[in-house]
Write a protein that binds this DNA or RNA. Sequence first.
DNA 1: ATATTACGGATATTTCATATCCTCAGAGAT
DNA 2: ATCTCTGAGGATATGAAATATCCGTAATAT
Lengths: 161, 161
Amino acid sequence: MQLRNQVEWALHCCAILAGLPEARFLSTKDLAKLHGVPKEYLGKALQALSQAGLVEGTLGPSGGYRLAREAAGITFLDIVEAVEGKSSSFVCTEIRKNNPCRTPGMRKNGPCAIARVMWDADRAWRERLAAVSLADLARTLADELPPDQIARMGEWIEARS
Amino acid sequence: MQLRNQVEWALHCCAILAGLPEARFLSTKDLAKLHGVPKEYLGKALQALSQAGLVEGTLGPSGGYRLAREAAGITFLDIVEAVEGKSSSFVCTEIRKNNPCRTPGMRKNGPCAIARVMWDADRAWRERLAAVSLADLARTLADELPPDQIARMGEWIEARS
DNA sequence: ATATTACGGATATTTCATATCCTCAGAGAT
DNA sequence: ATCTCTGAGGATATGAAATATCCGTAATAT
């Protein structure tokens, strides 16, 4: 079980967008160059973010993407689910139905006990992701990254008018 | 992102094995019949459980599998990791290294802040799975399943001497 | 007008989950 | 001893999904 590569890309892109000057857009091309990933395929991930209402895109030269809301209102879970989907990592195929010993009376059993445990763990995973916002991430990065690199990032972005 | 089908099968098989009479083995063939899944492919999952030391297999007629330890000592996490692997669902490819603005001085940055969040969520998922043992599951099932079905299961198993 | 961009569809490529088949060695039954 | 049944493990086929690229369209800034 492994998350898509696009999840990692989308998270890093959102981290960049969260650090952007007010009302500034950054294009797919620049985001791809910044992370060294294929532009076309990254575009798909960004479209997913756009469709989920996390970012908004604008056309034309000097177009691109920016966050659709404040960074504090976008969580890791929002981004992960936008790219990876909201369905649980565990899918119950109800193989207990195949058991020849099962009660034929079709008692309306609730969900399988095994599935409940797995879904519970999945919920814990999502809760943890929902607890961290892009604002939290930006705070951490501002704290950890060397100041000169942050400055250089500002210049780099400024350079792409 | 989705767990293998084998994970579900392995969990259900372990649930059966946990309910087995002392020292009783159950073969792959019977486990496959009981769950309506392909015998050969299920065998692979059971081999993974065996290799992880969760179950032990014996050869010959009346051979098969049984739990290698007491049900209370085997958790959902053990089973999931035996089949699915222990590696995190999020793999950090260090795309920040591709950032042209990064400090060339190779400051020994710790792990990426984004990866840390994702790994933390993965840890929460695993902790939740580690909190439930096969004994817990057996207790739940004994509580929920209709008694006659449990009885019929006993007969069914008894029938395969 | 022209260049640039997001958007969406179509398609190729690669990887991985799924599934089957086969051989081998060990264990029990006759 | 011989036979059958079993798990272990390798080789391989198949299908779906992730990865990646290409193209056409509409919108927008210069």
